[in-house]
Every structure is written in C-alpha cells, then in structure tokens.
Amino acid sequence: MPKPTPMPEPRPSLPRAADYLAPELARRIEILEHDGDAGDFDSASWFWLVLFGVVTPAALLLWGWWA
C-alpha cells in the first residue's frame, strides 16, 4: 500500500500583527512548536489499540453469535 502523501504544513513563524495572540498563549505555542509535541502512537500503542479495539470486539462478536 503506497504511503500517503502528507499535506504540507507551513514552517512555524513569528506571529504577525494580524495574527495577534495573547502573550501567554503565544508563549505556550512557541514552546510546543519547538519541543512540546508529545509525540504520536508508538508500536506498543498500536498493539493495544488493535487488541482492544479490533481483536477483542471481533472475538466477542464471534462468541456472542454462537452463545
């Protein structure tokens, strides 16, 4: 399956006059843009998601149908 092409996002830039943000909000965004992104799912996350969200429901449905 081909890897999906991401829609490009703009490079983070300093706020312009029209883009005024409250100072505290701007500070938070600045921190998050540089090193605050907590990251995405890892392989263990996907394992648990598939186990609890797909495998377990499928097994329950099969069991329940014949119960």
Partner: peptide, 8 residues
C-alpha cells in the same frame, strides 16, 4: 495530513 498538525 499524515499526522502533521500545526498548533499555531
């Protein structure tokens, strides 16, 4: 977006 989000 292939997991890219622009928080600003």
């Amino acid at each position: 977006r292939a997991r890219h989000v622009d928080i600003r």
